[in-house]
Design a protein around this nucleic acid. Structure first.
Length: 463
RNA sequence: GUUUCGGUAGCCAAGUGGUAAGGCGAAGGUCUGCAAAACCUUCACGCGUCGGUUCGAUUCCGACCCGAAACUCCA
């Protein structure tokens, strides 16, 4: 498999550090507010990547952190007159709920920053010991990383220290580009937001959190570090600098997902142009939202267009339609069970090519078309092959038709009710009472149930 | 200014040094009592503009235009 490595600036063959295993660290959200679809796309990208690795037979370790303490969390909590941990927890739950709805798998670990303060302190101490960290020149008690001492600084984003603007007005820093490792407690902030440390009480800087947690769960070297493109600098550059300065080899591959934009502009909390998951979930079903967010290559900008979600729903519905039709029409044959078949080579090729989901989706569509034709022509063996392929491919992408609601009690009751109406309608059709037949069909359409007549009888589906 | 990344049909969106995947949508057709669904056919002589390299460029190179992201708060 090839992956685009931001640090190398090119596609690289992916080779795990330990054969048969892949370790991934993904920057999760700062839980200062509810998720928007940009956050969800990011989580989805790494979920898809993890699923593909799993399909390839690798054992995946995925760590996705939660930043539950930082300036913004404290600020927002203050505005809303709640404690910072209440705010953080509430938002963390909103993220979790959306992840679940999008069928984004649980990571192996989902560490909160506040649960790993000792590891962060240890890492800062190490940096002090090695001469890369210093206490703020203004005596504030802040700790900073000395970027001038680390000659590789800028290697992730290919920038020279001199070209970077940095924060010129901060008298606590030796170099304007230096960044905070530890922020001393302030009188204006709640006491609960500070922890004791050898540098005085305070809280960790944003970047050190990820360095410490990645090392804690995945070790000093691991395979892939992922996150949104906007985190490349300063966040990931700083993580890389402090971790490697501390002697860790850190991530072997750096992967960055493209952002979601609205009318050509980045979706962000500060711009106030956030599209929330509920905006999509209200319009189309959960799997269609997943399909939509996955439908652009993960490194491309996804410019949000409301109609595009409806298009995604239509496209996915055709695939699900084939799966359901094949299941129905093959039921009575010797091909009633779908087989664990090899996925089409082209699909594998696309997925191995830097996770080209759009290319992979094209393969699924082609298989579904071919499968529908096979069913039309009564080529059951081929249809069975196509059906199995499509089911397998959808499963890898987490886009399978949910089967849970087909087995529950409510569904059975609904089915019996509709079957009664179908029988009445078919009787009416036999009697050439088309007015009554169409009336039944129209009434069902109105409540979202679609009937379709075929040689194998009349079937219904939720629209 | 510096560093990244884009500009492909009505819309979404892949891709390639050899003549443009797929989806949505639209039109026509097959099927149907009529529909729906499904299938078939058609829908970019064109891939921001202008040059260059080449037998050949949308793809490589250069310049330019437009847009996005980052530059110490952001997935």
């Amino acid at each position: 498999m090839k992956l685009y490595d931001t640090k190398a600036g090119e596609l690289r063959d992916f080779k795990p550090l330990v054969a048969g295993r892949v370790s991934m660290y993904v920057c999760g959200p700062t839980v200062q507010s509810a998720p928007h679809i940009g956050h969800l796309r990011s989580a989805l990208v790494y979920d898809l990547m993890a699923r593909w690795f799993t399909h390839l037979g690798l054992e995946v370790q995925l760590v996705r952190n939660v930043t539950d303490i930082d300036d913004k969390v404290l600020e927002k909590a203050d505005e809303q007159s709640v404690t910072w941990w209440e705010l953080a927890y509430k938002n963390e739950q909103l993220f979790a709920a959306d992840y679940r709805r999008l069928a984004i798998g649980l990571p192996s670990h989902e560490p909160r920053a506040t649960g790993h303060i000792p590891q962060m302190i240890t890492l800062i101490e190490k940096l002090v010991e090695l001469g890369y960290a210093y206490g703020g020149l203004d005596g504030s008690g802040d700790m900073y990383f000395n970027t001038a001492k680390w000659s590789n600084y800028g290697e992730l984003t290919h920038q020279k220290l001199d070209d970077m603007e940095g924060e010129r007005s901060n008298p606590a820093k030796i170099n304007p580009q230096d960044f905070a490792l530890w922020k001393a407690a302030k009188f204006t902030e709640p006491e609960s937001a500070s922890w004791p440390s050898p540098f005085g009480s305070g809280r960790p800087g944003w970047h050190i959190e990820c360095s410490a947690m990645a090392a804690h769960y995945l070790g000093e070297s691991f395979d892939i570090h992922g996150g949104g493109l906007d985190l490349r600098f300063p966040h990931h550059e700083n993580e890389l600098a402090q971790s490697t300065a501390a002697g860790h080899s850190f991530a072997n591959y750096w992967v960055h997902n493209g952002l979601v934009s609205v009318q050509g502009q980045k979706m962000s909390k500060s711009l106030g142009n956030s599209v929330l998951s509920s905006d999509l979930f209200d319009k189309v079903n959960d799997k269609a939202v997943r399909y939509y967010l996955a439908s652009a290559h993960y490194r491309s900008i996804l410019d949000y267009q409301p109609e595009a979600t409806v298009e995604a729903a239509a496209a996915l519905s055709r695939l699900h339609g084939f799966v359901a039709r094949a299941a129905r029409e093959l039921k009575e044959s010797r091909f009633s069970e779908f087989a664990a078949v090899e996925l089409p080579d082209e699909f594998t090729l696309q997925m191995n090519d830097d996770l080209n989901i759009p290319g992979a989706l094209a393969v699924i569509h082609e298989s579904a078309t071919a499968g529908n034709t096979d069913l039309d022509e009564q080529r059951l063996s081929q249809a069975h092959q196509r059906w199995s392929e499509v089911v397998g491919m959808l499963e890898v992408l987490g886009l399978s038709l949910d089967s849970s609601n087909r087995t529950n009690q409510e569904h059975r009751a609904l089915d019996q009710l509709i079957q009664t109406l179908i029988a009445e309608r078919n009787k009416a059709r036999e009697d050439k009472n088309y007015q009554r037949a169409d009336q039944i069909r129209d009434q069902l359409i109105e409540i979202g149930i679609e009937l379709s007549d075929s040689t194998s009888g009349t079937h219904w589906s939720l629209n």
